[in-house]
Design a binder for these strands. Structure first.
Lengths: 111, 111
DNA sequence: CGGAATCCCAAGCGATACTG
DNA sequence: CAGTATCGCTTGGGATTCCG
């Protein structure tokens, strides 16, 4: 059995670090919906459901700062901004899918 | 390609639900260290690193309420309490390991 | 040893209104 | 359309002290 006690985690636990990047209230869901492909702001807001503009903007900026998503602005009128996953963000796909499956089975299933 | 847009997520997104259960600042790390096996309070506090008693207690209670861990109290003096993963908690192992790997590779690796 | 109780601050988060 | 600005509530989280 692998022992994790050696993982001191003091100030640099990989699990904690990972959760920090997807830990916001809407970050996980946002990333999840971006697995779908490129989406615009309003599309995301619809998909995520219940998130306010302010929060979605904030979370998107943080995800962008973390290098998980890419923000492409088209200088047209009306404004058009597209969000997509970076490679780093795409690498979260198996984790996000696992979280979805786990959530379905162990949380929502009321079982 | 699977489209997730159908996932309205309004009030019940599985990803969000899953993240809520492991979303506390120390919950992920705590669970991670419990993958190791049964541990006592002080042992956990040492392993997690930097967490205060109050917070560890709180997170443990929440994890217990979520059915992820089991709390076994031995009525002896000095007090002895052991924490372990339930089946539901154990089912998070692949996810926690995936988070650890991802964190090591994409966050801590400074790459 | 393993908490519980209290106090307090900072961050997270939401509603609303306004703008290029 | 895609934000920004402002305000204020609510929560999370830390330090400290006390208890069985």
């Amino acid at each position: 059995m692998t022992r994790f006690t050696e993982y001191d985690c003091s100030g640099g636990c990989p699990v904690e670090a990972a959760l920090e990047q997807i830990g916001g209230k809407w970050k996980g869901v946002t990333l999840f919906h971006l697995l779908d492909g490129v989406k615009r702001f309003n599309e995301l807001q619809r998909d995520v459901g219940g998130v306010t503009q302010r929060m979605l903007t904030k979370q998107l900026r943080e995800l962008e700062a973390a290098g998980l998503i890419h923000r492409e602005v088209y200088p047209v009128v009306p404004p058009k901004v597209e969000y997509s996953l970076t490679e780093k963000g795409e690498s979260l796909r198996p984790i996000l899918m696992a979280l979805k499956d786990w959530g379905e089975e162990h949380v929502l299933a009321t079982a």
